[in-house]
Design a protein around this nucleic acid. Sequence first.
DNA 1: CCCAAAAATTAACTTATGTTAGAGAACGCT
DNA 2: AGCGTTCTCTAACATAAGTTAATTTTTGGG
Lengths: 234, 234
Amino acid sequence: MQTLLQFIHSHPVGGTFSKDDWGNNDFLGVTARIYKPHSVICRQDDNNDGIFIVKSGWALLYRGLLDGERQIIDTPLRGDIVGFRSVDGPRLASLASITELAVYEISSKKLVEAILSEGRLGKTIACSLARLNAILAEHLMNAGRRNAMSRTAHFLLELEERLSSVGLSAHGRYECPLTQHELADILGMTTVHLNRTLGELRKADLVAFRAGHVEVINRKKLVKTAGFDSEYLR
Amino acid sequence: MQTLLQFIHSHPVGGTFSKDDWGNNDFLGVTARIYKPHSVICRQDDNNDGIFIVKSGWALLYRGLLDGERQIIDTPLRGDIVGFRSVDGPRLASLASITELAVYEISSKKLVEAILSEGRLGKTIACSLARLNAILAEHLMNAGRRNAMSRTAHFLLELEERLSSVGLSAHGRYECPLTQHELADILGMTTVHLNRTLGELRKADLVAFRAGHVEVINRKKLVKTAGFDSEYLR
DNA sequence: CCCAAAAATTAACTTATGTTAGAGAACGCT
DNA sequence: AGCGTTCTCTAACATAAGTTAATTTTTGGG
């Protein structure tokens, strides 16, 4: 079985983890786990304090409203950190797997201890969180200031970029196991309207999203309609 | 003049900074600055790498789209950190003062050096970023899944809570120098519609926002229409 | 290979929010 | 105190996106 050390060493993504980050703690308390597709890894409002680092697979991080609606906050991908909070307290969001999902788990307390004794780790985590910040800020732009078409285009380009940086996309093609319903939840719109929008994007020969597969057809036009600049993902 | 040390020590907000955080670095390279109202502190796409910690005053952190529209990402308040990036590169957002704004500035490189040598600082920054993440995630909920009325209600309650935690609000009242135009940019809607919405909130005796002053009138009903739970701000 | 369930698609209709335009109110100079 | 500028507020109208509902297609288990 691959250790967190090996994983982090071989996938310098999300926060560019490296061996030195963990100093002499030697990964005490880190557990590797595999979840089945469509299982709930942790629930909003729960009081356990585990933090997850995605090893492989697709997941959804989401928050529910009182009326039963939910908004997907992010789709954590390989190397991303999930569940780090500034203070003790219940979880702010739920995490569910879409595909089979492999993660490393570590308790919040252990991680904080490790950060305190090893400056490099603190830097790594801070950088990873700063990147997540940038992604969330861009999603906020999407939700607030872009229409359905450019919003959808923008997110499909973001996914391509993020997947490509971890070796899961090439030549404008990638596998995306999200249903239209899930994608609509991410983009803060209705399934029906997303479907209309995907149709338009296809008809305009910009991107095609069918059967779990995304294909960028006319990148130049797509980037333009999306108003996409990948800088925020660096 | 107050030093960053003293400030951070006396305002354990945002990331609960404390004296030890800075170890033996003794705040080298930290500058205190004061900006006039309505000045631009830093610009999106600029290449300087300064990081700001807000000491007092109101500011807007925003990102512009190509078509000239902008989305306000956050309103950094006392104790908040602005501008930390995961990698070198141009700024992702602009920062502008609304009122007179006092900040501490430190170069990104210096801050990273300090983090590397002092674990506590890394923890502090990471926690502060985690809190900002939670705030952005909640704004995303707002933009994606709440209508104009609950969105507005939610943000006014958030401001109250954040200001209250730094001693700038009490008894459901606080000063808020934002114009309706700025508030609309934050909430991702038009000035006209925000105006309508504020009118409704006033007529329903939930909150009143007039002349730079906010007053919560019926908290219980307001919290309910907003679907507000302050946990994410802790 | 078939069937049930889930996902995608389309259509008709409704509604929340955007747009444009203008008038009144407040603010900040000089 | 006056005057221009920036805010606030309203109204009439336009439209993107939501709702409901039904049909077709795909998927996965037995």
